[in-house]
Nucleic acid binder design. Structure first.
Length: 590
RNA sequence: CGGGGCGUAGCGCAGACCGGUAGCGCACCGCGUUUGGGACGCGGGGGUCGGCGGUUCAAGUCCGCCCGCCCCGACCA
């Protein structure tokens, strides 16, 4: 490709609203342009990189038996109504009506379409297992797109769907993906760690997220360096230290003026925060059939812990949750700062599973300025649900081995879900088994967003000057710079010759044939970040060849004119070998 | 959805407080000089100042409403 012909130009300055490096550099280098919040145009250079990423995904998916196909972006609402996600998902779903006033959905994901197509295509166990995938556009109207390509509303995703006759089959396909995904990320030269994750709107049994660890990430993970436990904070478990057992003491009301926080309460009464109970009030939207009802949720947790809203949402099977307003709190008889589960009405009480183990806690009296001492679960109040609703923190004990957990930020670049029969049962996607029984197909789903992935590659591989593409995903392998100064048509001729020669040899070259100064060309080469830079100039010619430089290294040297193709072949093989060395087998954590 | 910020040429910004013919740098077009780290001279093109309404002789500037974009939080796969 001649740079003089390339569509799109580089920018000396990044748009003021681009903050993180991948966003700034991808925009400056002319890889992406924004159309609206969370909606981007992929320019030719980025398109080439994304195509390479997609081909890596195809390669790995085909290797585990995947068959590529394409499913529609626009769906009739009926299939989403059949699985009830039409009702469960809120404003993130893109809905519109067609010309006949029929409800339509923009694809957020394709479980419904898969479950629909299998209704007609799979009748027998002989047609299982199968693995199908496609690379297709998704629309998720995220309330807050941000950070360039990291979090967008419209994006392209590789999503695969496994179809099995039994759970052993699903387990096998899940494990296949577990390793194939590591291979994909490693071949793109980004380090990832797989952690257990919330199943969220997908439903299902088991899920992992592949996290690229970076400060710009918006997910928080808890990792155990001792035993390897890793989980998204949304579902991370931890060992809760138990309060010492003691006999139940009589309840006692004490005056605690101006003591609205756990910290001040513990200090005033001279008890550890773990001897207090804290209340959190939420309003939850809970689906009931095709309707949604609002319920007041009163969550109780020990004072030394925080409520994890994902766990709480899952515990009550809510569609959405928000903090209750002061009026709503007052209307159920509670008093913010002095709230207590004792003596409430018309609320769903959810208590953390550490509470029943913790005798004689201090709780609010539902009266401003007063708390109750020695409040005990069962004797003084009851709960609708007892489960783990606590949020794991840095330093909490690992649920598996008891070592300290540490927290770190990450970007979710992929996920895998054991869905089971949630979609196939809802949609009547059954097959006839060997034993003559009709059974629902067992599904798994597995996704990787290609745009987010390229942003993570850019985030991982850049410096102050620009991008530094790994050879496997670079738009072009070679950036050929011609410094054709005054009176040196020989230099331009040699560059043209080299361009033709390397193309014939099968390499991908971005040829800077523009009439620009050396500074402009070198700066653009650094910004665009192709793995190899070749410079043809008077100087290099006088030294008998062309200058070679790797983008990720400082050293330069002169390759004799006759040896260029041979040397480039060696260097590119070397680069591929460096990345291949990172593609390793990862122990399965399931 | 809550809090904050910003919308003036493709990009980065001034002008607004104090109303009076819309500017600068980069980028772009032409001619010439220049060519190993974002060259220089001369000449040029490009803006309904986010939108609508109001105040005023006069609005980029003052007032109101709306829209868009960004950041923090909530939320999310």
């Amino acid at each position: 490709m001649r740079m003089s012909q390339l569509f799109g130009q580089t920018l000396r300055e990044a748009p003021a609203d681009a903050e993180i490096p991948s966003h700034r550099l991808l925009v400056r280098a002319g890889f992406i342009r924004q159309l609206a919040a969370g909606i981007f145009t992929v320019m030719p250079l980025a398109h080439r990189s994304i195509t390479k990423i997609e081909n890596i995904m195809r390669d790995e998916l085909n290797a585990i038996g995947g068959q590529e196909m394409t499913m529609p972006v626009v769906h009739p609402a009926e299939i989403w109504q059949e699985t009830e996600r039409w009702y469960q998902i809120g404003s993130e779903m893109g809905r519109f009506k067609d010309k006949n006033n029929r409800d339509m959905v923009l694809a957020m994901t394709h479980e419904e379409v898969v479950a629909d197509i299998t209704r007609t295509e799979v009748q027998s166990y002989r047609q299982l297992p199968r693995l199908i995938y496609h690379i297709q556009t998704k629309w998720r109207d995220d309330p807050r797109p941000r950070a360039g390509l990291i979090r967008v509303r419209e994006f392209t995703m590789k999503d695969s769907y496994s179809l099995d006759m039994d759970w052993e089959g699903l387990d096998k396909q899940y494990r296949n993906h577990y390793q194939a995904y590591f291979n994909i990320f490693h071949r793109c030269d980004i380090p990832v760690t797989a952690v257990r994750s919330d199943v969220g709107m997908m439903g299902g049994k088991l899920a992992h997220e592949y996290m690229y660890l970076t400060a710009v990430g918006e997910d928080t993970l808890l990792l155990c360096d001792n035993c390897g436990y890793g989980a998204n904070r949304q579902i991370a478990r931890f060992r809760k230290n138990e309060n010492p057992p003691e006999d139940l003491k009589p309840i006692k009301k004490v005056a605690t003026p101006d003591t609205k926080t756990i910290e001040s309460l513990a200090k005033l009464l001279n008890v550890p925060e773990s001897r207090t109970a804290k209340a959190v009030f939420m309003i939850a939207d809970i689906p009931e059939g095709t309707d949604t009802i609002e319920r007041f949720v009163f969550a109780v947790i020990r004072g030394d812990m925080d409520v994890n809203e994902t766990k709480l949402t899952n515990a009550i099977k809510a569609k959405a949750m928000r903090p209750a307003t002061e009026e709503e709190i007052a209307s159920v008889g509670a008093v913010p700062g002095y709230a207590s589960p004792v003596g409430l009405k018309d609320v769903v009480v959810v208590i953390d599973d550490a509470i029943p183990q913790s005798p004689n806690l201090v709780a609010g009296a539902n009266e401003t300025g007063y708390h109750l001492m020695n409040v005990n679960y069962e004797r003084d109040y009851t709960a609708d649900i007892i489960t783990d609703i606590a949020s794991a923190q840095e330093g909490d004990a690992c649920p598996d081995c008891g070592s300290d957990l540490r927290t770190i930020r990450g970007v979710e670049v992929g996920n895998i879900f054991k869905l089971g029969t949630r979609y196939t049962e809802a949609m009547g996607s059954y097959f006839l088994d060997r034993d003559g029984q009709e059974k629902p197909i067992i599904m798994g789903s597995y996704g990787i967003g290609s745009g987010r992935l390229i942003a993570c590659v850019a985030e991982e591989h850049h410096d102050d000057l620009g991008l530094i593409w790994p050879i496997t995903v670079a738009p072009y392998e070679i950036h050929l710079v011609a410094l054709s100064g005054r009176g040196t048509s020989e230099t331009l001729e040699e560059a043209e010759k080299l361009y033709a020669e390397l193309q014939t040899a099968g390499y991908e070259i971005l040829f800077d044939d523009r009439d620009e100064s050396p500074g402009v060309k070198f700066n653009d080469a650094d910004l665009l970040g192709m793995p190899i830079r070749l410079t043809v100039s008077d100087r290099a010619r006088s030294q008998g060849g062309v200058e070679y430089k790797r983008r990720d290294k400082q050293e330069k040297d002169i390759i004799p004119s006759g040896d260029v193709v041979k040397r480039i072949t060696e260097e590119i093989n070397q680069m591929h070998a460096e990345i291949q060395a990172k593609v390793v087998s990862i122990p399965y954590d399931g």
